[in-house]
């Protein structure tokens, strides 16, 4: 992910808090948030993931005017297959599954902050899956910096691709 500008907005934090089922008043009531130790509405611990909204190239968001691989009238909106597979296989067109996520917090992220993010590839490795089939892991490391250029969060994501759809029992 490369994001030039990821503004932390109160409405976005509210929607995110709702989506994770967090009823804490601090995410919904600015006056209350101002009376707390943090002094403003904080971002929940996993909120930086929503920086995808501000990544112009994020591939898991439908692009205006382009075909989308999810269903329309039929099971996929892709009407013309180019070459192999398209959206099929592995993680279902989503570029594999999310295996691990790690955050290191350097500063508390708050409404009003404006982040930028840069991602570098990390390690990659392979493992034999329990049901045969190879598992291919790869790491990416994203640094989120605030408007002062200070490091706020370091996020390490590990993705896994499988040779066939992974199912858990």
């Amino acid at each position: 992910m490369a994001v030039d500008r990821f503004p932390i907005e109160a409405g976005h934090v509210m929607m995110f808090a709702r989506s994770i089922g967090d009823a804490d008043e601090i995410y919904y009531n600015e006056d209350y948030a101002r009376s707390t130790e943090i002094g403003n509405i904080p971002a929940p611990p996993t909120f930086v993931q929503a920086g995808a909204q501000f990544d112009p190239d994020y591939f898991l968001r439908p692009r205006i005017g382009q075909e989308w691989f999810g269903s329309a009238k039929g099971p996929t909106g892709i009407t013309q297959r180019s070459g192999s597979g398209g959206g099929s296989g592995g993680g279902g067109g989503g570029g594999g599954l999310h295996a691990e996520q790690h955050y290191v917090y350097h500063k508390q992220l708050k409404v009003g902050d404006v982040l930028s993010a840069t991602t570098k590839p990390g390690k990659s490795w392979e493992k034999q899956g329990r049901r045969g089939g190879k598992l291919m892991f790869s790491e990416s490391v994203t640094e989120y910096r605030d408007q002062a250029g200070e490091l706020v969060v370091t996020a390490t994501s590990v993705g896994v691709r499988t040779e066939r759809p992974a199912t858990s029992s």
Partner: peptide
């Protein structure tokens, strides 16, 4: 909220028939 619209999370038709 997160912006991750991968249909394997929300689109049963795609998930069962394609993915």
């Amino acid at each position: 909220a997160s912006g991750d619209y991968n249909p394997v999370h929300t689109d049963q038709l795609y998930t069962s028939e394609i993915a």
